[in-house]
Design a protein around this nucleic acid. Structure first.
Lengths: 145, 145
DNA sequence: GAACGCTACATGCATATGCATGAGATGCAA
DNA sequence: TTGCATCTCATGCATATGCATGTAGCGTTC
């Protein structure tokens, strides 16, 4: 009889149960990420000229600012929080400085580093964009458990 | 005394509890997505010349193929599954055809549409890449709950 | 203090992406 | 049949990204 196959069967075209679960988790993550970041890019882009990365950076800067009002934050400390390569982060900051949302200043104690700080315009733009951002999160993440 | 503030206080710089939860969920999603897709791009890129989108397309094609061996799948049906714009999807298929992984054929019943099918090389590449992909998912998604 | 390695950020280059548009095919209406 | 709207995929263009590299400043060793 066929006894003996059971759970030890191996089919190279089939995942194990654990693999299947992870695969579904990954697909769900991809779908959510696409839907949400797409909506953010579209709505915040149209209304405020911001993308996902731009908004994230504004938000981190605002948090740092509330936490410790000062001269801004080191670039290195911020780069990790927005999931960009060092070069992409450098350009992101350059774009946003050009747009008047942030300001770069060289550190006095270590002239290799730079501080990045919100401008008034950046603070204002973030305040306006935040409700929209939160609404999008509620719409795209809230209903799906 | 300060009685009377309580839960009705509104601070434009603070989220409600629900907003905070969604915000954290979104940041976690961003972090996981970045870590996982980054690892996939790096490892599958080095070993097999595949990125996240390339692997996803191979996987969908393989699934369709196992489900119903035939002439391939309509482009339109696949485009939605990989979270790309129509133009990006078109170019993805073009790249992969050039690399010998898939094959495009015009539909006979509707000559506007195309069928996309795995080649032998595509099937083989997918079979080799899949264990690596699954391992990365286990490493980046498995441990984080 | 000169030379060396290391760190922090900027930039050249190749590429993947999205939007707008183009090109070909279909179907329907007059 | 002709004309027109629609559909499916491809392509021009602008831009964001990553990798490799460049540039400037720091620290250490001799």
């Amino acid at each position: 009889m066929c006894y003996g196959g059971g759970v030890t069967d191996f089919d190279p075209d089939r995942d194990s149960a654990a693999e299947t679960a992870l695969g579904e988790q990954w697909r769900a993550l991809l779908a959510r990420h696409a839907a949400t970041s797409c909506a953010i890019d579209r709505e915040l882009g149209e209304a405020f000229g911001l993308g996902v990365s731009e908004f994230e950076l504004l938000e981190r800067l605002r948090e740092f600012e509330l936490d410790e009002p000062g001269h801004g934050e080191r670039a290195q400390a911020l780069a990790n929080t927005v999931h960009l390569s060092q070069s992409a982060f450098s350009r992101l900051v350059a774009r946003m400085e050009k747009a008047g949302l942030v300001q770069r200043t060289h550190c006095v104690d270590d002239r290799r580093g730079i501080y990045i700080a919100l401008t008034g315009e950046g603070r204002e733009r973030y305040a306006k964009a935040r409700p929209v951002h939160r609404r999008i999160l509620a719409e795209t993440l809230g209903s799906e458990g």
